[in-house]
């Protein structure tokens, strides 16, 4: 790090870098290290039985499955939304564009109670669904709905700038070479947005994995039916079963870190495509 200083006349490297590392160490790294040290106090067998218990296995499956469905829903509708917002002009477009960020700004608990009120059997949408024999709240479907809500902005916001930058001339060139509209979309537009679409998909999936606040109200939290991993961790903690909570948390954290890696790779890919 001394080299950084030598090649640069700007002051403050030692101060800011030192402060950054100390702060991150105290607030982020030491607490995270505690989690892994706690796990290390379990024997391998204890750890394995905890993380592969029936209830835990079901919670992972539900969390991962619902997150995947939510991410796919957002991939489809996010791409559609991004396309419409970039390519078409219609009254209210500006407001809709701004509203896409709502899930970033709205507290998850508020989203949770509001979605629950909407999709509960007596709610505005819930009553409608019930007529078709579909139960949303207090069922896995509710979990998916909450996840779609919280991860909605990711696909839109990663695809939107790419679509906006996409040179219309390229499409015109494709058309001038005899491509039909659908061929142009499939062979020219789609490959260009694919890296960002996958990045958005991965971000949405990662966000849904850890979501808690908006789900806890709508899911009903029935073990073996609608209990997600985050909730199981909380339950274990409230039972003062720290070992159990820690083991499951380590599994979920490992999954999150794997997603960071995947997202970094995808982002490197989309940057390469952009150059």
């Amino acid at each position: 790090m001394s080299r950084a200083k030598k090649n640069n006349v700007l002051p403050g490297f030692g101060l800011t870098c030192g402060y950054t590392l100390t702060y991150l160490g105290l607030v982020v790294l030491i607490p995270l290290a505690t989690l892994f040290l706690r796990t290390a106090s379990l024997t391998w067998e204890q750890f394995w039985t905890t993380v592969t218990g029936d209830r835990a296995l079901f919670a992972y499956k539900l969390t991962i499955g619902a997150s995947m469905i939510a991410a796919l829903v957002n991939a489809v509708f996010g791409l559609l939304t991004a396309w419409v917002l970039v390519r078409y002009r219609f009254p209210g477009r500006g407001i809709l564009d701004a509203l896409v960020d709502l899930p970033f700004a709205l507290p998850t608990a508020v989203a949770g109670i509001s979605l629950c009120a909407l999709y509960a059997p007596g709610g505005w949408v819930g009553a409608l669904l019930q007529r078709f024999g579909v139960q949303a709240a207090y069922a896995p479907l509710g979990i998916v709905i909450a996840m779609v809500f919280v991860s909605l902005p990711f696909v839109v916001r990663t695809v939107q700038p790419v679509l906006a930058d996409l040179d219309q001339e390229v499409e015109e060139a494709a058309a001038s070479l005899g491509a039909r509209r659908w061929q142009t979309l499939r062979r020219v537009v789609f490959p260009a947005v694919l890296p960002s679409l996958l990045t958005g998909l991965a971000l949405a999936f990662g966000r849904s994995l850890g979501e808690f606040g908006s789900i806890v109200f709508i899911s009903g939290n029935m073990p073996g039916r609608t209990e997600i991993a985050s909730l199981l961790i909380l339950t274990r903690l409230e039972e003062f079963d720290y070992a159990g909570a820690t083991a499951i948390a380590v599994v979920m954290l490992g999954l999150s870190f794997a997603m960071i890696f995947v997202i970094n790779v995808l982002q490197a890919w989309s940057r390469r495509g952009a150059d």
Binding site: C17, L35, L237
Partner: peptide, 30 residues
């Protein structure tokens, strides 16, 4: 400034976004 480990540092700064809120709270309980 230029220094080694910069991209790792950026990843660490973003870590709290990837940690589920329940786990984040739990860290402090532990």
């Amino acid at each position: 400034f230029e220094f080694r480990g910069k991209s790792l540092l950026i990843t660490v700064i973003d870590l709290p976004f990837s940690v589920s809120p329940i786990i984040a709270g739990m860290l402090f309980v532990l």
